[in-house]
Structure formats: C-alpha cells, structure tokens
C-alpha cells in the first residue's frame, strides 16, 4: 500500500479539549499523528494535523466522526487527503 497522508483542520473558537477529542477519534481508528500545529487565521483558532492514512479504508467513517465532534464543540473539522496540498504548493 502506498504511503498516504491526510490533513485534519480544525477551525473555530479556542476551547479546552479540542486536541484531546480529535486525537481520541484518530486513536480509536489506530491513526498515527505525524505533525500538529496551531495558529490564528482571520481571528479564528486553527489547528492542523498531518496524519498517516496508509492502508486506511475508513476515511469516510473517520470524517463523519470528526464532524460529529466538530458539531458538538461548534468547530469546523475537515479531513482532506494531502496530495492536493502538494499539488498546489510544490512544483
């Protein structure tokens, strides 16, 4: 299986437990977090994670679970395959 990575982005109001809840979903699916960082984007708290999704066929399910966490906390959580970021930002 090829090496496949995805980017999880969380945008919204900063609050206690964001990283905990997101990583809990990822851990339950045995997904390894490769990198994690956060910043403020246009006044919103933004967290990005690069995760390893090689051999993982449950992306839709994970995406759904993350969205549920997002809805509970009033955050926008997305999971996107990394290739498109590579296409846009690397020649």
């Amino acid at each position: 299986m090829e090496n496949r990575r995805a980017i999880v982005s969380v945008i919204g109001k900063d609050q206690v437990g964001i990283i905990a809840k997101v990583t809990q979903v990822l851990a339950s699916k045995e997904i390894n977090v490769l990198d994690i960082s956060q910043t403020i984007l246009e006044e919103f708290f933004t967290m990005m994670m690069i995760i390893d999704v090689s051999d993982n066929e449950q992306l839709d399910d994970i995406r759904h679970k993350l969205q549920t966490v997002g809805d509970e906390m009033g955050l926008k959580i997305n999971l996107q395959l990394e290739d498109v970021f590579q296409a846009m930002h690397r020649i």
């Binding site: 982005s9 945008i11 910043t39 990005m48 690069i50 997305n78 990394e82 970021f85 930002h89």
Partner: peptide, 16 residues
C-alpha cells in the same frame, strides 16, 4: 517535502 502550516492554512482559507 512536508506541507507547512502556512501552506495548509492558505489552502483552507481559499476553500472555506
């Protein structure tokens, strides 16, 4: 090479 935070936020800002 790894995608940096700035690049991630740029793409996400463009879309969202």
């Amino acid at each position: 090479r790894n995608i940096g935070l700035h690049e991630m936020t740029e793409t996400i800002r463009m879309v969202q």
